[in-house]
């Protein structure tokens, strides 16, 4: 019987690539996303590709909705906590309370709530993969986003320390710039930011999905509590090619 992988923020970008990769790896997929329209479009493509995917349009901040999406699910073997937003890009003094709450709510609180409900259904050998960001190291003009991703990194470590005793591994992937709709928010800065990437371009979402695939499976059974930086070496200060 195929194992089940639950993916949040699944409808597009990195999440969609993860669904397609884990589906190709042989998992059945439970795909969650707040964007019902985009989720329906992606689901049609997935079905056409022969993947076994169940979808649920869910704002993962809503615990009751997450539990409803899990109705009838006996076991979640892999959870990929991918749903996230970047929010406005402004200096800390110009970010209002509502914007801060929204980014922390989606990127951190939803991650915790989804993980709790999935881990309750996770058998021995289960794997949780949280999608953080290389931005957790710090950055000017995005303090609430940076804080939310740093929180996910620390959460990952604490979850790994604790859930090891349930036979569950918890790791995180911290991508650098990835070619998704999220980077459209950079506006006029996008070209310059792309040129600053060590490889000269953002990563393809499939590259991040490939790392998730390894962390999800038995080849990574000895990897726990780690933050895998996938940024082309930018965090080392590597200059562009």
């Amino acid at each position: 019987m195929p194992q089940l992988a639950m993916v949040t923020g699944a409808a597009q970008g990195i999440g969609r690539a993860i669904v397609e990769r884990l589906g190709a790896d042989g998992f059945d997929i439970l795909a969650l996303d707040a964007d019902e329209t985009q989720l329906s479009r992606s689901a049609a493509d997935w079905r056409e590709a022969g993947l076994t995917v169940r979808t649920a349009a869910v704002d993962c901040r809503d615990r009751a909705a997450v539990i409803k999406a899990l109705d009838g699910v006996e076991a979640v073997d892999v959870l990929v906590n991918n749903a996230g937003i970047s929010g406005v890009l402004d200096p800390i003094g110009q970010v209002d309370r509502a914007a801060c709450d929204r980014v922390m709510g989606v990127n951190l609180l939803a991650t915790i709530r989804v993980a709790q409900e999935a881990v309750r259904r996770m058998p021995d050998g289960g794997s949780v993969i949280n999608i953080a960001s290389r931005g957790y190291l710090g950055g000017a003009g995005a303090a609430h986003y940076v804080a939310s991703k740093a929180a996910v990194v620390s959460l990952t470590r604490a979850m790994a320390i604790e859930l090891r005793w349930r036979g569950v591994r918890v790791n995180a992937v911290a991508p650098g710039m990835v070619d998704t709709r999220m980077i459209d928010g950079f506006g006029d800065m996008l070209g310059a930011l792309k040129r600053m990437e060590p490889t000269g371009a953002p990563a393809n979402p499939a590259e991040i999905a490939a790392i998730v695939s390894v962390l999800a499976g038995p080849d990574a059974s000895f990897v726990n509590g780690q933050i895998l930086m996938a940024d082309g070496g930018k965090s080392l200060g590597l200059p562009p090619l």
């Binding site: 922390m104 951190l108 915790i112 957790y136 710090g138 303090a143 940076v146 804080a147 939310s148 991703k149 740093a150 929180a151 996910v152 990194v153 620390s154 959460l155 604490a158």
Partner: peptide, 8 residues
Amino acid sequence: AFSGAHVA
């Protein structure tokens, strides 16, 4: 998690 957010 919130401690990590403070440091960030």
